[in-house]
Design a protein around this nucleic acid. Structure first.
Lengths: 155, 155
DNA sequence: TGATTTTGATACGACATCGTACTATATAGT
DNA sequence: ACTATATAGTACGATGTCGTATCAAAATCA
């Protein structure tokens, strides 16, 4: 094994990976059958930030390849949760709008996920969780910035 | 949006999800083409814990469905990184052994991932990362335990 | 011991992610 | 204006994940 500092980092990424997996499994069990977290997060983003964005902008926001976003949007559109319209300002691109059904879907999902979190939140004091956020945000921003510094693939 | 505590938890899971995604992308960029993190982590587990375990034991260790583990092991076996042998103690199951090639693969991967972490580790003091671990472990164990408390699917 | 249930593994199919290639439109350079 | 390049989106194929069904081998038990 490498030096102790590297070891600590491996352990961090390991814990993060496990927590992500467990949380995603829990969350997806709460979504209507056939939907995955990625699709919910897009809907949530369209409400929390704004809708009318282009698919590419969404792909960049989530740092996924644009082909992945095309697929997610196709699923959401087939389910009637978003509408894709031509972008009046640019003939190449489109705009993504959330529908009333999409809003309702998101609201119900939020409510269900909140129920899911409630018992966990009772087991760990809010302060302990809140205390984690600054360091995690710092780490996330660092990883994000470092990503651009490398020889990387376009998104 | 729900109450402030739930909001904090959503933010935590959001950060964790982003960090996991960024870290996985970085790590997989360091692995030989065609390999994903899941396959590396199995190899790593066979060395760090022990090899000779059954596929089902590995599936449980990673909390993935056994069908997913079957697939991962098939990939590793095709690449000559593990061997699957009949379990002398139980005719239903098998034992997974890491090969010399598997050890070499894992060692090279560890070295490369360490290089990848190094610049990040220089940017954030080790103490700050180490300070995160206890709370994350607590959270992971809580999520893990809560998983068993629910009506859940067998692994 | 024979029947039933449980367990370990896999075949198969559905879907998600993502890389490559391609088309259409916009932008830049001359 | 004309050409070359860049950008937005999608079709397609490869692979990973995972649920259901299936099979073989225990384990249970009557």
């Amino acid at each position: 094994m490498p030096d102790p500092t590297t070891e600590i980092w491996f352990r961090l990424f390991n814990e993060v990976g496990i927590i992500e997996q467990l949380a995603r499994n829990r969350f997806e069990a709460r979504l209507p059958a056939g939907f995955v977290l990625a699709q919910f997060t897009v809907l949530n983003h369209l409400i929390r930030v704004r809708d009318g964005q282009t698919p590419l902008a969404l792909a960049r926001a989530f740092q996924v390849p644009k082909t992945s976003m095309t697929h997610s949007l196709a699923v959401l559109e087939r389910a009637g949760l978003v509408r894709l319209e031509a972008n009046p300002g640019d003939g190449r691109s489109k705009q993504v709008w959330i529908t009333d059904e999409g809003r309702a879907f998101r609201d119900k999902a939020i409510a269900s996920l909140s129920e899911d979190i409630a018992p966990i939140a009772r087991a760990i004091p809010q302060a302990e969780i809140a205390a984690l956020l600054p360091a995690l945000e710092r780490l996330r921003k660092l990883l994000d910035a470092a990503r651009d510094a490398e020889p990387h693939k376009p998104r």
